[in-house]
Design a protein around this nucleic acid. Structure first.
Lengths: 199, 199
DNA sequence: GAAAACTGACAATGCCGATTGTCACATCTT
DNA sequence: AAGATGTGACAATCGGCATTGTCAGTTTTC
């Protein structure tokens, strides 16, 4: 019994806080470095340097390289989805098309972060089972989000998956073109796709 | 001038023929090995073994690992597109829906080669600029193929990209589900997506 | 202000696979 | 059958990076 672990503080933060900060720093740095050189060329060392930390702390927070990639993916998609949800609600409160607003937010953010978009839409595929699982889960979430609406129109649930894939492919095409189109054109194309299955 | 390079034969084949055979053997072996262990874990050595060749011949035909991946991708997609085209023409000759026939061929073949599907739809992303270019080209070809039809309906060309991406995502979802649906259901979902933009 | 815990820089180790080189054997030409 | 060329097995080299370990300096606590 006993064992008071002496919750000592350092620079004003508790152990847990410091750890969390380091972890967050690594994730931020990872996104930056991945965007710079690509995931495959991003060494643990380079990421730690960018985070202003030493390698030892990498293994404190992450088991291995792909563990960090998965965490970064989660973080990035979480933020993006939050923003899309907020945009949707805001638009609907104004009596406007919520889906359109969400899509616009999506493509706008992608446009603002081309390197990140490349990493998390393209490079992420097939890195490892662990990462694949995280990506699959995120996509499944998106699909589940729109599946009810699709069903209501009498279409198969797989159509929902198709719509999600289509929205992503439109983004990829747009990126590959060097963002040759205006955001609103892209959004309109995506909206058109979303109408799939309507009678 | 002069320099008659003595077109010596070996086992009944000319130099060029032997080289081409070895190259083809490597590509076949690559598809098999990739499917087995994934591209990232497929060593040059393992592929050569599977092809019944020695490492030396690898570098005779390919510059590097990703060069072979690109070649394998080209080969696989070429065959698939040929078959889809043939199915389309055959159906239309019978007065049936050609697009539907092509899609059915697509999903049927994917179902027959789940490992290959995984490699060439998922793992292939972000392997290297060289491979990315080949993939982008193949997708662009598919998009170009359906773009006229989409335009005719008054929709943006990006919608074509969306449709292609959707068809692929439907495949991925289907694969992830362990092929839980019948092929015809999948084809119907894809067809529904293809109708996007119709009034 | 002295001991204890925390941190950052850096070196040592270990592993894995690509790429190249060597050599004995097989198959051809004449 | 002899010499030339193609081939397959295998060893040697090489480089890169993850992962672990060491140590001096810093910030706390008491």
């Amino acid at each position: 019994m006993s064992a008071a672990p002496a919750p000592r503080r350092y620079r004003g933060r508790s152990i847990a806080e410091r750890q969390a900060e380091r972890r967050a720093a690594l994730i931020e740095a990872a996104v930056a470095v991945y965007g710079d050189v690509g995931y495959r060329n991003a060494s643990v060392k380079a990421i730690c340097e960018a985070a202003g930390l030493t390698e030892r702390y990498f293994y404190e927070s992450f088991e291995a390289s792909d563990d960090l990639l998965a965490a970064a993916y989660r973080e990035v998609t979480r933020r993006l989805h939050d923003e899309m949800g907020a945009a949707k609600r805001a638009a609907e409160a104004r009596g406007q098309n919520g889906v359109k607003a969400a899509l616009k937010m999506y493509y706008t953010r992608l446009r603002e972060h081309p390197e990140a978009a490349r990493v998390f839409l393209v490079e992420i595929g097939g890195v490892s089972p662990r990462v694949d699982a995280v990506v699959a889960e995120a996509i499944a979430n998106s699909v589940a989000l729109i599946a009810p609406a699709v069903r209501r129109r009498g279409a198969h649930e797989l159509v929902a998956a198709g719509i999600v894939g289509g929205v992503i492919q439109i983004a990829l095409d747009w990126i590959a073109s060097g963002y040759a189109r205006k955001v609103d054109e892209v959004v309109d194309a995506a909206l058109r796709l979303c109408a799939a299955g309507e009678r």
